[in-house]
Amino acid sequence: MDISKLNEIKEKAIERIKDAKNSDELVEIRNVFLSKKSELMSMMSTLGQMEAELRKEMGQKINEVKMNISNALDKKVQEIKELELQKTLEKEVIDISLPAKGKESGGKNPFFVVRDEIIDIFLGMGYEVMDGPEVELDHYNFELLNIPQDHPARDMQDSFYINENVLLRTHTSPVQARTMEKKAGKPIRIICPGKTYRRDDDDATHSHQFAQIEGLVVDKDINIGHLKATLELFAKKMFGEKREIRLRPSYFPFTEPSVEVDITCANCGGKGCNICKGTGYIEILGGGMVHPNVLKMNGYDPEVYSGFAFGIGIERVAMLRYGIDDIRKFYTDDVRFLHQFKKKI
């Protein structure tokens, strides 16, 4: 037994470890060089017969070789494991373009997108949201809004009647009267979104059913400037900070003065184009100062209180905002239409 033999074993082992291709080979190498039956171990068993001095020296040498082989093996095992994992990972490559597993939101009819957004704008300004019945009494729909029997304005809104006194509301304005009744003389700041009905034949721009958002503020010292500022804020939030509004005199029986509100055309920025018919402006809503008769009839002293009201057409806003050309699309619910409106911001 000599050192050269030890070195020979070591070199041989290292050589084989180096050439090993897989973990099975490594197990075998470990068996051949480090098991109890291995040459190295049998050399170890002969140590006992040696002189103390030599025994110590040889023991150290054998251990050294054993450690060397063992370390080399461990290192190689690690390498091969890495390699094998790498291979597995390569095999596990998938097509990342295949369809996702259904986690998609549904599409929200743009009618609701706009309705919810308008509501949120006014909630932010401290408004309450009121509801009112769609089957309504003539009393609330007309009488209390300064539209008595045979007022010419009743011609403007040809209505669906259930009987002489009951009809489908032609606007959300009856909620004004209902709210004033409920608030009994206290200040009011409300909006009311809801469905309304008029006897119009359906076409691209008319619908027997449509929806409005009514707004009403009643307090002391309210004037048109307040209405203007409120609607300006609404228009900018809804259509963009660059939009400006303009008021034009108009007529509604329940407001005086009454206004139509135009907004600068988003398409051309006010220069004039096809969409705004060259005017640079698009009509978006109507409003005005609550008529003193309406305040009086609903229990508010017009000498003390004043107020403004407005009505926004939900479909109209949605059509302008999204470039929708036919109001009937809101009521058809083609999913190819709905699916375009999944974005929630």
Binding site: L123, G126, V129, P187, R189, I222, K228, S258, V259
Partner: peptide, 28 residues
């Protein structure tokens, strides 16, 4: 008032948000 403003023009109206009491604007 309507006669006055429709002839003189709505551009004379100062746009100011109403100074109202704070309320909890919230859904029911």
């Amino acid at each position: 008032s309507e006669e006055v403003i429709r002839v003189l023009g709505f551009e004379h109206v100062k746009s100011i948000l109403p100074n109202l009491d704070l309320t909890v604007g919230a859904l029911s």
